[in-house]
């Protein structure tokens, strides 16, 4: 989130709520600040904007197209509606297709509730999947001593790729393949445990929205992520400001 200096000077309306925005803030920034929740998956405060999940599209008055709230800077007098009947259905279909794309058979999230995809399903009224389940032959990489990668649960949000590159600077991860064959790879698609560049920092695990990346050897109730740590780190590093963090859920 850009914490603008000076006074907010741009008047905008989000879901009927009037607000003043800072120069350079995106629709999502402002909405979050004033307590309006916009569904999203790939966006994470502290990382670059990816724009891949398409869930945070919103309606902007007098604009024929939906706009990506994580990437669209606000302009004066902008009137935003964060959800409508059509957007709700689009989001629901996208979430359903994300479920259909992987093997989201998971004993963890149903019990500890720590899964952003599951939250999104609840938020978008997904109660079953209308589409063909793809049953991909995705692999599990448990070669790392501390962490596990289960590609069956990966939604290709690339948070891990971005955090490893942008925050840790190691660039262990990247996306390999193309289209529906895309998958997260370490090094030259090697077992993670053999990666010479992995620093064992665990940031990729902390930011993973699903159970695709997890800590090894933890009980189900302890399998938690902490994506907010990245914004904390980034603000501390870039601005020299250490704000008080709430402990991870």
């Amino acid at each position: 989130m850009s914490r603008g200096n000076g006074r907010p000077s741009i008047p905008v309306t989000i879901d009927g709520q009037e607000a003043m925005a800072y120069e350079g803030e995106t629709i999502l920034d402002v909405a979050t600040r004033i307590g309006v929740r916009i569904p999203r998956l790939c966006y994470l405060e502290g990382l670059s904007v990816w724009g891949g999940c398409r869930l945070c599209l919103v309606e902007v008055e007098d604009d024929p197209r939906y706009r990506l709230s994580c990437a669209t800077p606000v302009v004066a007098e902008m009137a935003v509606t964060t959800t409508n009947w059509e957007l709700h259905n689009h989001r629901r279909r996208i979430v359903e297709m994300l479920f259909a794309e992987g093997n989201h058979i998971c004993a963890v999230c149903v019990s500890n509730g720590d899964c952003e995809l599951q939250d999104l399903a609840a938020e978008t009224d997904v109660d079953h999947i209308h589409y063909d389940l793809q049953h991909p032959d995705a692999s599990v990489d448990a070669s790392h001593p501390k962490y596990v990668l289960d590609r069956e649960r990966c939604v290709l949000c690339t948070r891990c790729v971005r955090v490893c590159n942008e925050i840790e600077g190691a660039h262990v991860w990247d996306v390999g393949g193309r289209g529906s064959d895309s998958m997260i790879v370490a090094e030259l698609s090697k077992p993670w445990g053999e990666s010479p560049s992995c620093t064992w920092c665990g940031k990729c695990v902390l930011v993973c929205p699903t159970g695709a990346l997890a800590f090894k050897g933890r009980a189900v109730g302890e399998m938690r992520h902490d994506p907010a740590v990245i914004d904390f780190l980034k603000t501390a590093r870039d601005e020299g400001k250490w704000y008080e963090r709430q402990e991870a859920r």
Binding site: N165, A170, H171, V172, W173, D174, V175, G176, V185, A186, E187, L188, S189, S197
Partner: peptide, 8 residues
């Protein structure tokens, strides 16, 4: 370049 990038 990072190997993962070349592979990607």
């Amino acid at each position: 370049l990072p190997p993962s990038r070349v592979y990607g």
